[in-house]
Design a protein around this nucleic acid. Structure first.
Lengths: 109, 109
DNA sequence: TGAAACGTCAACCAAATGGTTGAATATCGT
DNA sequence: ACGATATTCAACCATTTGGTTGACGTTTCA
């Protein structure tokens, strides 16, 4: 019986998966479109989406032959509360977010 | 070159390591004392502490033959900001924290 | 009807992870 | 000097992870 925090944090530990979540913040997307910007097979992205789904961080709904991926931000709630308890971090600052996100997406690692 | 978010989230993905962080929230501790409540070898705990140190979540200072472990809550700052950006989670609620913590520590998983 | 698009499955692989044990290294107290 | 304490190191092992490729089942549409 794995705890929610385990799967959520583990899912967030991978940069590809964090990038996917950031993409879904903009809009719901089909699996193929999620995979497009990555230099990685569709099957690999499909697995990453499975991990995100298992963690509850996204949901997937099949309509026709297209499977739509939707962000489920509530899944981060417990994890966020857990982290916040270790120090009083400032409230959401969208500028900070944009900066971190840009750094993540442009880094060549 | 691994990004900070990678190592921080990956480190938080393990329940033993989260329990260690919760213990260090109370007070600084020696490695042996950290290991005491776990049914696991000292060497295993030493490795976990290495992972937490690499992520910057704790620091270790050797004084005499004792190595003291100290929580470094600032390391969660970027990760916390990243997460908060996905939804506006309520401010810290210490009761919530105590509840989650208790659940984590008593769960037999 | 049949080809193209969408996505998963299965088998495989290399590397990382989480644990063990036993030996080694410091340091402390007597 | 010596035995006990504190911690790490090294070798090993099983499992998980993140990726690949090729075959497969659906759904669309011309």
């Amino acid at each position: 019986m794995s705890m929610p925090l385990d799967t959520v944090f583990a899912a967030l530990g991978d940069p590809t998966r964090r990038a996917i979540l950031a993409m879904l913040l903009e809009d719901d997307m089909a699996v193929t479109d999620v995979a497009d910007p990555f230099e990685m097979s569709l099957a690999a992205i499909s697995k990453h989406l499975g991990v995100l789904t298992a963690a509850g961080l996204i949901s997937q709904e099949k309509r026709g032959r297209v499977k739509w991926c939707k962000l489920e931000p509530d899944a981060m709630r417990e994890a966020s509360i857990w982290m916040q308890s270790f120090g009083q971090f400032e409230a959401v600052n969208l500028d900070d977010f944009e900066r971190f996100l840009a750094a993540e997406l442009t880094d060549t690692d």
